[in-house]
Design a protein around this nucleic acid. Structure first.
Length: 644
DNA sequence: ACCTAGTCGTCAT
DNA sequence: CGACTAGGT
């Protein structure tokens, strides 16, 4: 599927290129495409279960082609499938089985060419086939990574963290995942088509005021792998809709509310929720970080999205223990079974007819006894060396129901109930032996899925709507209700120093930034800004399309944020935190809370009110000119740097 | 003019 | 997977 019709829409910005144009670059390859094509050549043998590795040589030829033009290829393989796509997978599987049956019939009849045709229709790429190619790659010392889940997200991540300069695929989804430079339609001679996300503003249907978030939403609306489109909505309607809409939430709400009276697509039940889930899947699918050697989210979740990410494993992929994630990535563990590759494992993808039940039971869709984060408390072992800890017990309140469910109730201790919607704050950890007795799955944490474990102040994890109480010292509701328990020391990993080009679609926050504007006549202008701020690089360059903007350096408060940030609105209720929490996190927390205040649109009705702060206090007015350090700032258009 | 849903080809000799 | 197209709105 991909995004059907997207490529024709992007026709105006497609560039015919040749592999030699990418000499010296590192290019990530969506290997599935190659394997699938290669398998056509030996479909018959594969279908009959004969041993063949003809597909390996096809892929190696392509590798050689890339290398011939000075490109360093990085082959990326698909990993386990996301459970949410299991329906699609199942359908495909059934079709393949049918084709296989027919192929055998034709073979018995003696119609070899017809049988061949049918075998071609049932080609399926199994992890063991990928493994054959991996073996060849190892011999040739070609880099590769097996994605934990979808290769698409992994490819986008590799480009995002600068491991590669472009991505070679056939799938338009890559653009939705946030790839900048996508190479398509490679032929045997080395011709390719490049689509660069920075040219998006030159596409007629997203000329003004488009951000990447808008683009992503338009694609989802038009129908994607994670969400079929509403009846009557295709690529054109989707883009037209977002062109004339202030936000997708509003539009969906309008369609939902007034759909009967105005000409609007018919909304099916739960579409808004499903839409949000699709969006989160494009944003936060789990990928493997080759440096950290563990799973991370494609983008760092912002707080408001964390609320939706509970139990979204079926969309984002389950977290995996780092050793397992690495085993998969380096081709030692089968991404489906999470065990070392074994020829028999292919039964997962073939002949599931009879054993469907049994197979599903062993399939990672359902919880399996395979290593998981952390299955036991061993994960706490690595964090026990810390001395400054405190005793904490926790109670968990659920967001979905209005009543509070207590997993670990401690009646002898007073419980402190707080607003469920709290702004980011940190919890002062001052005593020894900090223990978090109960916490629900933490979407981004290394400590997810624990019930009782030790943590230390430098651990960074999130959990949802948790009520904590401390045995060790007096607590009050001001500081006891962190949405995110952020480590006190150090607050965050070191700021990132990045150098890259900026596109008009970018939007990010930074602490210190230096941006260079380069015009066609070679004039360079550098601008710096040291105040923490959010920057939205809107499509302001459309009038002067020849201008290049480079982000020379930036100390990010966070990683590049893929979201469209609306102008900062002071939170209705300021965090009741004391200064001790404020200093290190102000920029981050206010930045986050501003988005958090906008999230309710996705709540779809009844429980949205429960997320809103109970009391509204007038927000402090903010200085507009001088951006005080650590204070929330307005969204600064990048033009601000250059004075227009 | 646009959308939908279906079919076809993908390799290689 | 995309490309292409007949047939519908």
């Amino acid at each position: 599927m991909g995004i059907s019709g997207l490529l024709p829409l992007l026709e105006p910005i497609k560039k015919n290129k040749h592999l030699r144009d990418y000499a010296g670059m590192r290019v990530a390859v969506d290997t599935y495409v190659w394997l699938h094509r290669a398998a056509f050549g030996c479909a018959m043998d594969l279908g009959l279960g004969k041993k063949t590795t003809a597909y390996v040589s096809f892929c190696m030829k392509r590798v050689a082609l890339l290398r011939q033009f000075g490109i360093t290829p990085v082959l990326v393989f698909d990993g386990g499938c996301l459970p949410m796509k299991s329906h699609t997978e199942r359908e495909r599987r059934l079709r393949r089985q049918e084709a296989k049956k027919k192929a055998h019939e034709e073979l018995l009849k003696g119609d070899t060419s017809k049988a061949m045709e049918m075998f071609q229709q049932c080609v399926n790429i199994t992890p063991n086939m990928a493994l054959e190619l991996i073996k060849a790659l190892r011999k040739e010392k070609i880099e590769f990574i097996v994605a934990p889940y979808e290769a698409d997200a992994q490819l986008a991540y590799l480009e995002k963290i600068g491991k590669v300069d472009a991505v070679l695929t056939e799938d338009s989804d890559l653009l939705v995942f946030g790839c900048q430079r996508v190479l398509l339609k490679l032929d045997a001679n080395g011709s390719v088509v490049e689509i660069n996300a920075r040219d998006f503003p030159h596409v007629p249907c997203m000329k003004r005021g488009w951000t990447f978030a808008k683009f992503r939403q338009a694609c989802i609306l038009s129908g994607c792998d994670y969400l079929p489109s509403l009846k009557g909505v295709g690529i054109k309607k989707a883009f037209d809709t977002l062109n004339s809409s202030s936000s997708i939430e509003r539009t969906l709400k309008t369609w939902r509310t007034f759909g009967f009276s105005i000409k609007a697509p018919k909304m099916r039940d739960g579409y808004e929720t499903a839409f949000k889930e699709a969006e989160l899947t494009f944003l936060y699918q789990r990928v493997y970080d080759p440096d950290k050697k563990r799973l991370v989210h494609l983008n760092e979740p912002i707080l408001s999205d964390l609320d939706f990410m509970e139990d979204l494993c079926k969309f984002l992929g389950r977290d995996l223990e780092p050793s397992v994630a690495e085993g998969i990535a380096i081709g030692e563990l089968n991404p489906y079974t999470l065990r070392p590759y074994h020829p028999d494992d292919d039964f997962f993808y073939e002949d599931l007819d009879a054993k469907d039940d049994e197979a599903t039971r062993h399939h990672p869709i359902k919880p399996t006894p395979v290593p998981h984060v952390p299955k036991d408390l061993s994960a706490s072992a690595r964090i026990l060396q810390v001395s400054t800890t405190a005793n904490l017990t926790g109670q968990y309140t659920t967001k979905s129901s209005d009543s509070t469910s207590k997993f670990f109730s401690q009646p002898e201790k007073p419980t402190i109930d707080v607003d469920e919607h709290v702004y980011s704050s940190s919890f002062p950890i001052t005593k020894n032996d900090l223990e978090l007795k109960a916490a629900e799955p933490s979407p981004i944490a290394s400590l997810s899925r624990f019930r009782s474990t030790s943590i230390n102040p430098s651990d960074d994890f999130s959990y949802h709507s948790t009520v904590l109480k401390s045995k060790a010292h007096a607590v009050d509701s001001n500081n006891v209700s962190p949405v995110r328990l952020t480590p006190v020391i150090p607050p965050r990993p070191a700021m990132h120093l990045l150098k890259r080009s900026v596109t008009e679609m970018d939007s990010f926050s930074y602490e210190h930034v230096q941006i260079r504007k380069e015009t066609t006549d070679g004039n360079k202008t550098d601008r710096e800004n040291s105040s923490p701020a959010n920057v939205a690089v809107e499509s302001w360059v459309t009038e002067e399309a020849s201008v290049k903007i480079h982000l020379e350096s930036a100390r990010y408060m966070e990683q590049t944020n893929p979201h469209q940030h609306r102008p900062y609105k002071p939170p209705a209720v300021m965090p009741k935190t004391k200064a001790v929490f404020g200093s290190a996190f102000n920029g981050l927390s206010t930045f986050r809370s501003s988005s958090a205040s906008e999230q309710h649109v996705y709540q779809g009705g009844d429980n949205s009110s429960s997320l809103k702060p109970k009391k509204a206090r007038p927000a402090p007015s903010l200085p507009k000119k001088r951006l005080g350090a650590g204070r929330p700032t307005n969204l600064i258009p990048i033009t601000a740097f250059f004075g227009k």
